[in-house]
Structure formats: structure tokens, C-alpha cells
């Protein structure tokens, strides 16, 4: 969190984490397309030639003044591909909350778990841990016929019982609900 009392702004950093192709960038694209251009920046994407996230995506959004203060949010995605581990570590630094975007397909379960463990390892390097860090689980791709049941996903992935949301990011479903929860958790942590 960054507090600028001169401009009366409070800035939070929210990071979208998860395995490759789980829909992190799609979340940001939906937020970008649906927000009034007056309250958001351009969407910056650092992509490979294959349209995969190379370093991060970045989007800034702001809300109207609340009690005289303007909340702003810096939204980042991480590159999900395994070889970009250090990029993930860099982007995660200074995060106030994480959205973990999991792929609901059974064949991606190992990838989800590997990414979740990767997140924990990177948080530990920052002297934090998932058990005491604000994070939200998003089960994405719920529209796919082969999607795993929520009960199974909860049992296999959400062993810390963090709040979860079902999403179809390509259709915008669940995207803003997830973001709202992440923001609430970040702000709650900051007020403790």
C-alpha cells in the first residue's frame, strides 16, 4: 500500500497469479473493457510473439473520493509459464492481495497445484505466507463441459479455505466479484 497524503490517494497493488493459460490476462482485459475510460489507464501487456505474457500486464483504476481520499488500484498479472519464475517473484513484490486464477479442467489440476505452491514459495521469500496473506481463489472456465466440480476443486486446491468465486472470464462472469473481494481483503489487512 502506498499512501500519498498530498494528493490524498491510497494505492493498492493486486496481483493475478495462476498457471499459464488459466485466464489471468483475460480478467484484466474484461476489467479494462468494462470500466469507464475516465477511471482507468491503458492496458499494458508485455507479451511474447505467441501472445503469451512475457513479464506482466498492468492496469490502473481509480475510484471517486471516499472520505476525501482517492483509492487507486494497480492490477498486475504474472507470466504463468514455468520459465518466468523470477519475473513472477519481481511482480509479486509489494502486492497487497493476490487473485489466484485456477483452471477448472481436471487435466490442469497439477498445474494449478504447482502454481499455488510456487506462489507460497515466492511469498515466503517475501517473509509472507498464504495462511496470513489476503488472497482470493477464482475457479475459471466454469463453462467448459469437462470442468471439475466445485467440491473437488475446493478439496484439492483450497485447503486454506480462502474465499472463492466461480468465473467464466471470457464472458466477464465472476471477474468483478473476484476483484471486489481481493480489494476488500487488501483494505481490511491495511486497517488491522
Amino acid at each position: 500500500m502506498h499512501v500519498d497524503a498530498f494528493k490524498r490517494e491510497v494505492i493498492f497493488k493486486i496481483v493475478y497469479f495462476g498457471p499459464g493459460l488459466s485466464g489471468k490476462t483475460t480478467n484484466l482485459e474484461v476489467i479494462y473493457k468494462n470500466l469507464d475510460p475516465q477511471i482507468r489507464s491503458d492496458l499494458i501487456s508485455l507479451k511474447t510473439s505467441e501472445e503469451r505474457t512475457l513479464y506482466f500486464d498492468f492496469l490502473e483504476m481509480e475510484l471517486g473520493r471516499i472520505k476525501g481520499r482517492k483509492p487507486r488500484f494497480h492490477l498486475y498479472t504474472i507470466p504463468g509459464q514455468p520459465q518466468y519464475g523470477w519475473s513472477r517473484q519481481i511482480v509479486l513484490r509489494g502486492a497487497d492481495a493476490v487473485v489466484f486464477v485456477a483452471d477448472s479442467q481436471p487435466m490442469r489440476m497439477d498445474d494449478n497445484l504447482t502454481s499455488l505452491m510456487d506462489l507460497e514459495i515466492k511469498l515466503i521469500r517475501l517473509r509472507k505466507t498464504l495462511a496470513r496473506f489476503p488472497w482470493v481463489m477464482q475457479y475459471n472456465k466454469r463453462d467448459l463441459p469437462q470442468a471439475e466440480s466445485i467440491e473437488v476443486l475446493e478439496r484439492k486446491l483450497n485447503f486454506l479455505h480462502t474465499p472463492f468465486y466461480e468465473a467464466v472470464a471470457t464472458k466477464g462472469i465472476g471477474v468483478f466479484e473476484t476483484l471486489k473481494c481481493a480489494i476488500q481483503m487488501a483494505v481490511q489487512k491495511a486497517t488491522l
Binding site: I39, P71, Q184, Q188, A190, T191
Partner: peptide, 21 residues
């Protein structure tokens, strides 16, 4: 302490309005 409970409650309302929730 810059963010109190009232701030959080008002923020919730602002998020709902902005996100159309």
C-alpha cells in the same frame, strides 16, 4: 491510521457502483 471501518464500508458501496454489482 488512515483507513477506518467507515472508509471500508463506503469503499464497498463505491466498488458496487463502479463494477455494476
Amino acid at each position: 491510521q488512515l483507513l477506518d471501518l467507515e472508509f471500508r464500508d463506503l469503499l464497498d458501496k463505491e466498488l458496487d457502483r463502479t463494477f455494476g454489482l
